[in-house]
Design a protein around this nucleic acid. Structure first.
Length: 805
RNA sequence: GGGCCCAUGGUCUAGUGGCUAGGACACAACCUUCACAGGGUUGAGACAGGAGUUCAAUUCUCCUUGGGCCCACCA
């Protein structure tokens, strides 16, 4: 087989993508008896395109999966898309220029579903394009009927077991998205706000100044506190404070949580607004709360004259009005963290509304224990998980006031207010359209359907059930718990944790044995990539410019869990590797044309040397892959290929390959044997990292001998040809050759310049030297070699070489 | 404020309780018809600072400094 001069990754990669799809190379065989390796693939969110971070972490998980497949495992590697969340809803509103809240839910949902059908294939293609070896026929979208059924079933089970409850209470609320959100959906943002110092008087006329960043909440003030040990204010505790503008009279109380150092040491509390109030409220009697915020973030009638204003408008007006009364003593800018909704960046409010929750704060210890049963890669990521669990303060709010999503499957009886949950047989159900199967206990047939939908995490936390739920019960048993959950570290607290929670409830078991946590791709300066910074790199551009293999090679360069700054030049390294392995194969195949898998009569020492080294590399590669340390496998294979194989081995055997007349046919056969097996092992070791070039090289030559239809279905190399003696002699040969190269370079001579006399003194036996003399001669272009075994005469030096040109 | 991770040549990194601390990119010199100019050979260049454990620390412990991340949080 003569390879073309150059390798064209673009043509080749497209060809193999088609081939794998046609041949179903990566399909899961549920009838197979082979050991299963199951993966809980992260379903990417359809809103948007694959970004560089995706290609990074999905490539990393794919390395491991491909390795497992080559070990002979029956790989279950499904692929889904996540498209039931708020992010999707917002994307479609933008794309179609509509507002969900002004449409009928049914119409809007239909529009969403239809739009998703249109964009999904292109979206998924990006994953295929980088060589993700998932079985794309085991497919789900988190909004399809299958997922709706499973998600609603989960809700019903939890409801029946008393884990799901509905409660009116303070909720974290996003006024922009107009929905309740969960603790995990918040992030903090450094913001500078004005801290206003407001002067009021106690009923006895003593002046009191408090500071606030939220003056707009003034009309809802229900209490004021100072630290009980604060000498300045002790004497006022218990008095009423008169509030101008609203003419309210509120009580001044003592509370430990007040920091005397902050502001003036006097704090006012408002029913709306912030989490701290909720804490405070539990210790102080509040006769009636004053909720002045509407769900859309404007003020309601309880704000009196400020009704209808937005938060920002009210803030300005109230400060102005207080100022006119001379009550604003001063304002100063304050830098502090504000909790915002992570999807839209709007500051959250704490509102009272009726929501559905999953009760789980009582199970913290169980969650910790589950986390410890799972093997984490890298290990320290578990600590993040535990920190999160220990810090949980709220039950899991799973209801969302949105249109697009999986409906909460309940109705409320109009007559007796009883909650009726859907029957499992009628799932999926939309309570706004469907009716309960039976009448209410009270006999009524008059129901209101719940209009809220489930939080997207309530569904995506069920991905193991969703994926394996596509198969029969028998197969399901074999697939659970799954072997692996791969994901990036940013969603340990969302997706990973929530999945453990659901698995704990529904299976009383861990969802997977192993998790592998990928790092992030940063920009070249180590900063997070984000649209707002404009430092986004599109992975598709990189694939076009370099190749999917080069991109994957780059992704294999970072240790699992480590973040990596992106530098485009790193993709050049992968491209170079591709060129190098192509050229080395071109050379090998040229000399293997007439090779028919014969074994030589005697394996030459150089072959024993290279195969011994290869055995060790293969062993390490296997161990590293087992521990999810793909970067070590890649590095070691790369070094072995480039230096041991190309620079040394190929150079050493050239003499035997080109001049069989001199060295003999068996010596050439030995070289062919070494060449065939070493290169085959190399491309196999690289196959999980660079699936395209290795497939191309396999198909062009090895396939006709090895018969397996794809390199990715061949057996992972397990070579046991360790020969320490051969390694020692081979290393000696390499040292001599390197010495000759150094001399020639120092004298600015061509490496092919003949050497008249090469004198070698070394601690090896003549009998061994005789075996490699011809190779040293050929590789150094030496005309004459004088060898002298030193045998401990010069213990300080193993090797001495002299060269005469 | 609590926690986690990290600190190696100009840049990105590998690695080890003891060998000349390895590689990639960039840099310099030279070589190059025989697999490879996206090549080869050679060269210059680094363990953040301090203390401790040890015969021996780049490696282990602590502190400082500097980065990154997670969580909590201030009226």
């Amino acid at each position: 087989m003569q390879l073309p001069k150059n390798y064209n990754p673009k043509d080749s990669e497209m060809r193999w993508l088609e081939f794998w799809e046609k041949e179903k190379t990566y399909s899961f065989d549920h009838k197979s008896k082979a050991e299963i390796y199951s993966v809980d693939t992260p379903p990417p969110t359809v809103s948007g395109k694959m970004h560089l971070g995706h290609s990074f972490s999905y490539a990393q998980q794919d390395f491991v999966v491909r390795f497992q497949r080559m070990l002979g495992r029956n790989v279950f590697y499904p692929f889904g898309t996540d498209d039931n969340g708020l992010a999707t809803e917002r994307m479609i509103e933008k794309m179609k220029n509509v507002k969900g809240q002004f449409m009928k839910r049914k119409e809007f949902v239909e529009l969403c579903l239809k739009t998703l059908e249109d964009i999904r294939p292109d979206f998924v293609y990006d994953w295929k394009r980088i060589g993700i070896s998932a079985d794309f026929n085991i497919f789900y979208t988190t909004i399809n009927e299958h997922c709706q059924k499973i998600s609603q079933k989960s809700f019903i089970e939890l409801y029946k077991s008393g884990r799901c409850y509905r409660k009116e209470g303070p909720t974290i609320w996003c006024p922009e998205c107009q929905t309740a959100i969960a603790q995990v959906e918040m992030k903090d943002e450094e913001k500078t706000t004005n801290l206003a110092y407001i002067g009021v008087k106690t009923e006895k006329g003593d002046p009191l100044v408090f500071a606030t960043t939220r003056p707009e909440l003034y009309p809802s003030c229900v209490g004021m506190s100072v630290n009980p040990n604060d000498e300045r204010y002790k004497k006022y505790v218990g008095q009423k404070v008169e509030m101008p503008l609203t003419n309210a009279k509120i009580e001044l109380t003592a509370d430990d949580m007040i920091d005397p150092e902050f502001g003036t040491g006097v704090v006012y509390f408002c029913s709306s607004g912030d989490a701290q109030f909720l804490d405070w409220e539990t210790r102080h009697s509040v006769k009636s709360n004053i909720y002045i915020l509407n769900f859309d973030g404007t003020l309601n009638e309880k704000a009196g004259a400020y009704k209808g204003l937005t938060i920002a408008e009210a803030r300005k007006r109230i400060v102005d009005d207080l100022s006119k009364l001379g009550l604003i003593k001063k304002t100063e800018p304050l830098k502090h963290a504000v909790n915002v909704h992570e999807r839209c960046g709007t500051a959250v409010e704490y509102m009272v509304s009726r929501q559905w929750y999953i009760k789980y704060l009582d199970l913290k210890e169980d969650f910790i224990e589950y986390g410890r049963k799972i093997k984490w890669h890298p290990e320290h990521m578990r600590i993040r998980y535990e920190n999160w669990v220990n810090g949980l303060k709220w039950d899991w709010n799973i209801s969302r006031q949105r249109h697009f999503g999986i409906p909460i499957p309940v109705w409320y009886c109009r007559k007796c207010a009883e909650i009726i949950v859907a029957d499992e047989n009628q799932l999926p159900v939309d309570p706004l359209v469907d009716k309960p199967l039976k009448e209410c206990k009270c006999g009524s047939l008059d129901f209101t359907g719940e209009k809220d939908v489930l939080d997207t995490w309530a569904t995506s936390s069920l991905t193991p059930d969703i994926a394996i739920g596509l198969f029969d019960e028998n197969t399901q048993k074999k697939l659970f718990p799954m072997n692996l959950r791969p994901q990036a570290h940013d969603i340990i607290t969302f997706w990973l944790f929530n999945t453990v929670v659901k698995s704990c409830f529904h299976h009383k078991n861990i969802p997977w044995h192993d998790v592998m946590i990928s790092g992030f791709v940063l920009d070249p300066y180590g900063k997070k990539m984000s649209k707002s910074k404009g430092n986004i790199i599109d992975p598709r551009d990189m694939v076009k410019k370099y190749s999917a293999d080069a991109l994957r090679f780059w992704a294999a360069g970072s240790k699992l869990g480590d973040d990596m700054p992106f530098q485009e030049k790193d993709l050049v390294t992968g491209s170079k590797f591709i060129t190098k392995i192509w050229n080395a194969s071109k050379f090998a195949y040229l000399h293997l044309k007439d090779y028919k898998l014969q074994r030589p009569g005697k394996l030459h020492l150089t072959e024993r040397w290279v195969l011994s080294k290869l055995s060790k590399v293969a062993k390490d590669a296997t161990e590293n892959f087992m521990n999810y340390e793909y970067s070590h496998t890649k590095l070691e294979t790369e070094t072995f290929f480039w230096h041991t194989f190309c620079d040394d081995y190929l150079e050493i055997i050239k003499g035997r390959l080109y001049n069989a007349d001199k060295s003999g046919e068996d010596a050439r056969l030995s070289a062919q044997y070494g060449l065939y097996n070493t290169l085959l092992a190399i491309i196999k070791l690289m196959a999980p990292i660079m699936p395209f070039i290795t497939e191309e090289l396999y198909q062009l030559y090895y396939k006709s001998h090895e018969k397996t239809k794809s390199i990715h279905l061949t057996k992972w190399p397990d070579i046991k040809m360790i020969d320490e003696h051969a390694e020692k002699i081979g290393d000696f040969v390499v040292q001599v050759i390197e010495f000759a190269r150094r001399q020639k370079t120092a004298k600015q001579l061509s490496l092919k310049t003949p050497i008249k006399k090469l004198t070698i003194k070394a601690k090896i036996e003549e009998i061994d030297f005789d075996e490699v003399e011809a190779e040293i001669k050929a590789a150094t272009s030496a005309e004459h070699i004088i060898f002298e075994p030193t045998r401990g005469k010069h213990p300080e030096k193993d090797l001495e070489v002299e060269i005469e040109f």
